[in-house]
Design a protein around this nucleic acid. Structure first.
Lengths: 154, 154
DNA sequence: TGCAAATCGTCTGCTGTCAAACGGTCTGCC
DNA sequence: GGCAGACCGTTTGACAGCAGACGATTTGCA
């Protein structure tokens, strides 16, 4: 039986902490969501970073790793292995930019587009599941607030 | 000059991504806040985890590391080094619980209380600074939404 | 032209986090 | 009493994230 200790009077200090420390509440919620996202991505067979790169390449066309890093907020050194994995699976091509041969022109391939479509299809259900405690209006509120915090409206 | 590349037409894909993927927006915002919190805590000379442990001990009295871990959402194995550091600086005492010698009774000391008071004093300014893009009402909104997401209202 | 500085992708090392396994201890049942 | 199973704290190993340094390349300026 695990009820032995569970029966004890729960201190439940966490709600108080979350109310006082907005930063902690944000980080703990993020950790839970990130864990769910990793699990979902793992089950889908395509990492979160890989998915985001494919999505951006499909939306805005060929990019340097630098641009991908900046826009997706993924560190340059992390982007290396993300692109390595994608290239190994034939989902993107890495070609030197002829005008600036320091940089690559990372391009999504047709298999990459198919894989992206497949991964995209499962996202709405994942979001619905992860943010189930919130109504649709509340999710919009949260999105707006996070946008301000990220300096997007500015 | 760094304006060379900055002058180029900014793709600014990130806002679109943040709007579509609430999970990504949450994680990126959390990462920024966590970085600010670490920097603040580092400057204060007391890690975020250490601060939280002192705060909880002061609020609810002596606790086992297990209870601290669960309520503060810090992994057990991480809690070890957190308490190690606190004990080494004399801010807490670790005594075996006489009724259950598997667990500790982690207790805050008087120096610990003084250090806590000092650290607490700098928190409001830190929060004000970090969440400056949001009004007071918006911070309350965010707190409520995160609370629901964390399953507190349940 | 030639050279210093900046940029891009890569690699290395450090830190923080987590899962799993391990002793020491307690509980439940015989 | 004695033993199987659960629990607490700790250690270990693996892995992501990030800072810093490096070679290759381009740019700016003399």
């Amino acid at each position: 039986m695990a009820t032995k200790t569970a029966d004890r009077v729960r201190p439940t200090y966490f709600p108080q902490l979350a109310a006082e420390r907005l930063d902690i509440a944000l980080c703990r919620a993020s950790a839970a969501v990130a864990r769910a996202a990793d699990a979902h991505a793992g089950a889908e067979g395509l990492g979160v970073g890989q998915h985001l790169v494919l999505q951006m390449l499909d939306a805005v066309g060929p990019c340097s790793q630098q641009t991908l890093s900046e826009e997706l907020r993924i560190d340059r050194s992390v982007m290396v292995s993300v692109c390595d994995d994608l290239e190994r699976e034939g989902l993107v091509r890495r070609e030197r930019n002829p005008h600036d041969r320091r940089s690559y022109a990372v391009t999504i391939t047709d298999p990459g587009r198919r894989r992206l479509a497949q991964a995209q299809a499962s996202i709405p259900a994942f979001l619905e599941d992860t943010f189930q405690p919130l109504t649709s209006d509340e999710r919009d509120q949260l999105s707006t607030l996070l946008g301000k915090l990220l300096g997007i409206g500015a």
